[in-house]
Design a protein around this nucleic acid. Structure first.
Lengths: 127, 127
DNA sequence: TAATCATATGAACAATCACTCATATGATGT
DNA sequence: ACATCATATGAGTGATTGTTCATATGATTA
């Protein structure tokens, strides 16, 4: 949130590069939406919920069991996922069943896992 | 961080489903690493840094210009990205040039963008 | 229509985090 | 050696966030 203070000498900022980046980069509101999306994946509890729903439709109490967490905490996180349209739900009597509402989610997580595995191979094996 | 309090009736938790999920789900330390990875993408500043480095190697002051943010803030975020091996750097005189150190990053961001675009189409066009 | 069950929600609190300010480091030129 | 430039780092602070506790809602059953 700063302005007008040039960081280094007049020669330093590489304006050709900077302009190239500016041309191609996401727009301001896309950055916001992207970071909000990644925030949802950035918490272990939500991540476990998402991964649990990848292949199975589950009710709230199933998720409590799986996460070993109380109902309120789970419901609060489900609300966030609902608001962002990442999960959908249906009522069946007293229970409410949640499931994923997106095809990209699995790919995003898989790719992040690939990164982690590769990172571990780099560090673990070659040193 | 709770235990022993069964959330709903004995009939409710669908143990067959729960066990299926448990078989396939990531391990505890993988969840931790995943969420830590996504935390890096979950902040607008870091996201802008990452996207800026997608195609161009840039020095710290270039990033300050691009993000319109002071040098200290940028350096702090770069440190986080460095620690997680998401970016690498090389010295050239007084300047330090940063670049991405991962091939998955671009795919992850692209997929998240796809999700956002699709979401907008769903909401904007069809209603 | 009470009572109960599954889930949702509001308020409060502790922990985390991104930024700022001040200062340190490490390379360059004089 | 000294001043300067580009960047890094530590401490402090306000804002955000995940969890808990208490309570509300909405469907079922007696």
């Amino acid at each position: 949130m700063e302005e007008d203070k040039l960081v280094c000498s007049e020669k330093c900022p590489h304006f050709n590069k900077i302009n190239k980046v500016k041309e191609r980069e996401p727009k301001a509101d896309e950055y916001l939406k992207l970071s909000n999306m990644f925030k949802l994946f950035a918490d272990e509890t939500r991540l476990k919920i998402i991964c649990s729903l990848l292949k199975e439709e589950l009710c709230v109490c199933d998720l409590c069991e799986l996460l070993n967490l109380n109902q309120s905490a789970v419901s609060h996180q489900l609300q966030l996922l609902r608001n962002s349209k990442l999960v959908k739900f249906r009522r069946e009597g007293k229970q409410i069943f949640y499931s994923l509402d997106d095809e990209h989610v699995e790919l995003i997580i898989q790719m992040a896992l690939d990164h982690i595995v590769e990172e571990e191979e780099k560090n673990g094996k070659l040193l």
